[in-house]
Design a protein around this nucleic acid. Structure first.
Lengths: 235, 235
DNA sequence: GCAATAGTGTCTCTGAGACAGTATACA
DNA sequence: TGTATACTGTCTCAGAGACACTATTGC
């Protein structure tokens, strides 16, 4: 029975969050060869009794703290497989990329493990292995999914304002969105936002309404990030 | 250096086509254990010097004939990784699912290899391994992609009519689409369809215009498969 | 002529972009 | 009072659904 070559299988996480109106990604500084002292995506090898999603969830909890998992409704999904020959000098390694979207949480404590920090996605390049590619794929996936899903709320804390949500879109897409039209769009989508009794206090202007995530997952019709109106172009 | 367990890595193909206005998938009848004489997705193990896409393209060419590859502009993309413990009784096997969209080509010759045939997706169940899941994921991916890309044309021969293209949508989505509105939509999307000088002859009614695929890949705004108009629902 | 398929025009309604105007807080 | 932020309302235009109508073939 021909079984082909054997691979080590790892999971690498693209953990995104929005901090200071900028998209950030969680990176770890490698403490061993290869790529020692380079920044890399957090990840690890799949254990004997684990499915891929189990490994991803375990690594995510290990990197961000278990407390994050239960309380905050983040998002974790598979991105794709990366297995180019030579991508790891140690041998044949297939890496499954996973995409995680989280609210803005503090940088992980650097107690026993390696240094870990959220860095602005724009400033990131020269990661270890082919992690630049995996990161780019993850960011593009996140950008695309904001269009037709309600996943932007995964970047927000359990209770948030419409302005918070809009800043997520603006940070991820690097665009500006009209606050009035945005308000109309998201509040008129049934099941997207559930109003909360409480209001924010202490701000500068009128206190905004607080919302929780609703049960809706799809956005129909989608939110468009590009100017449409390219129909009737003379081609 | 902890490297975790080792996996055999395979590629399994979800090869879809539209035949007789029905979505079909290419299956092979297994000639060996496990799952001997069960239907399964075509696939094979990744070779030492291959990337995942190379394996997928090689298997696709082997299954459908090399002639198909050059002439017809099909589509091949990665679907996802499947690695649940126990999904293959022989041991730890990670399978990368790939999705291929092809025009209606004849069933492959059964000369040396196992029996292979296109079967209607609706009638397919009880595939080997976890291939039912991979197939379902592939079909759902194809359905979703028709909404916001021009990939429906990948199901069509090099020259096709607007009606051919509409039948692709109707077969994949299992819906009916108004021919007039569909015509308006696709012909007014710049770069989707390029008219051809020739027309079809021998049909029953007015001879239709023939088109080739244009350079456009995205559909902005997308084609909606669900009735929208769920806004203003009292919730 | 009739039937069948291809393609155009028109009406209506939803929804997005633009932006004036109102509401409610703090200083 | 002024300023800042939150929110509502209105106008306009693009585009989708519905469907009447015209065009071009075979019979």
């Amino acid at each position: 029975m021909m079984r082909g070559n054997l691979f080590a299988v790892a999971v690498d996480l693209v953990v995104l969050t929005v901090r200071h109106d900028q998209l950030h990604v969680l990176l770890v500084r490698r403490g061993e060869r290869p790529y020692e002292s380079h920044w890399a995506l957090p990840g690890g090898f799949v254990r004997a009794d684990e499915d891929l999603g189990d490994t991803a969830a375990r690594e995510l909890a290990a990197q961000t703290g278990t407390a994050t998992q239960g309380a905050v409704q983040g998002h974790l999904e598979q991105l794709g497989g990366y297995a180019a020959p030579g991508r790891d000098p140690r041998g044949r390694v297939l890496s499954m990329g996973y995409l995680a979207l989280l609210p803005d949480i503090p940088d992980p404590e650097t107690t026993n493990g390696p240094t870990a920090a959220f860095l602005p996605v724009e400033d990131v390049y020269g990661l270890a292995f082919d992690h630049d590619v995996i990161l780019a794929d993850g960011v593009e996936r996140a950008r695309a999914k904001l269009e037709y899903t309600t996943l932007a709320a995964a970047f927000c804390p359990p209770e948030f304002t419409v302005t918070d949500l809009r800043r997520v879109y603006e940070a991820v897409w690097r665009t500006e969105i009209d606050p009035r039209n945005f308000q109309r769009k998201v509040t008129s989508t049934p099941g997207f936002l559930i109003p909360t009794a409480t209001r924010v206090t202490g701000g500068r202007g009128r206190p905004p309404q607080l919302f929780r995530r609703g049960p809706a997952t799809a956005l129909h019709p989608p939110m468009l990030r590009e100017p449409v109106s390219m129909a009737h172009a003379t081609t």
